[in-house]
Simulated assay, not measured.
Amino acid sequence: MTVVVDDIRTFMAEAIKAQPVFLAWGRGDGAWTEPPPEERGRKVLIDPVGFRQVARSQFVVPDPDGEIVLSSGKWTISAEPTNHLYVEFRYDFADGQGETLRETMVYIGTQVKEGLPPGQKYFVPDEIESLGRAALLQNFGPRERAVGTRSTYEYVISL
């Protein structure tokens, strides 16, 4: 039997880390009474609201005592590259204010349009030149973006 070895998986995680990584959130379908199962073939959100550039990306290793606790398990930061890449996105107070959100998608290699203010980290769909590649999709029940709310999303991309 042939297997994909960890060395190439680590290489792929390093390649992803070197790319622009964004999290898009969207309204989903307002008719959803419950979030539908995620579809592996989806490449776009149903109704995107905005895109946030990654705030932190680090290699991690599974660790039952890890300080990073996600639904996928517990993780510890690794000084060496691994085949697990932790990504964190921090949405600010004004991002998507007043919206009802039902879906998120992590994109790798997203390109924003030229001429936008330096240091801008949040982008509306019209400011995106190219989505890049879809990596992770999550559907959830409606979440209202209220005044005075910050949101943090964390994922581990395991290859």
Rank of each mutant, 00 (worst) to 15 (best):
M1Y: 11
G148I: 04
A15N: 13
V5H: 14
I16G: 11
T149N: 11
Y155H: 11
W32D: 09
D47G: 08
S130E: 12
D65I: 04
L23V: 03
M1T: 11
F51R: 00
R90I: 14
V54Q: 07
R9W: 09
T110A: 07
A13L: 02
Q97F: 10
V147D: 14
E99K: 03
E129Q: 07
E88S: 09
V5Y: 12
R150G: 13
F89Y: 05
R90K: 15
A24Q: 06
F140G: 07
E154A: 09
I77W: 08
L45S: 03
A79I: 04
G30C: 05
A79R: 06
Q53C: 09
D126C: 06
R27P: 12
I157W: 07
I157P: 08
K17R: 14
N139A: 04
I108H: 10
M12H: 14
Y107G: 05
V124Q: 15
V112C: 10
V106Q: 09
D65G: 15
R133A: 15
V60T: 05
Y153Q: 13
E127S: 05
G66W: 02
T76P: 09
Y122S: 10
K121W: 04
Y107H: 04
V3H: 13
Q19F: 07
Q120V: 01
Q58E: 15
G66I: 02
A146G: 11
L159M: 11
L101I: 03
G41F: 05
H84Y: 09
G50A: 12
M1D: 14
S151V: 05
Q120F: 09
E114P: 11
V4T: 13
T33Q: 14
N83V: 03
E38A: 13
P37W: 01
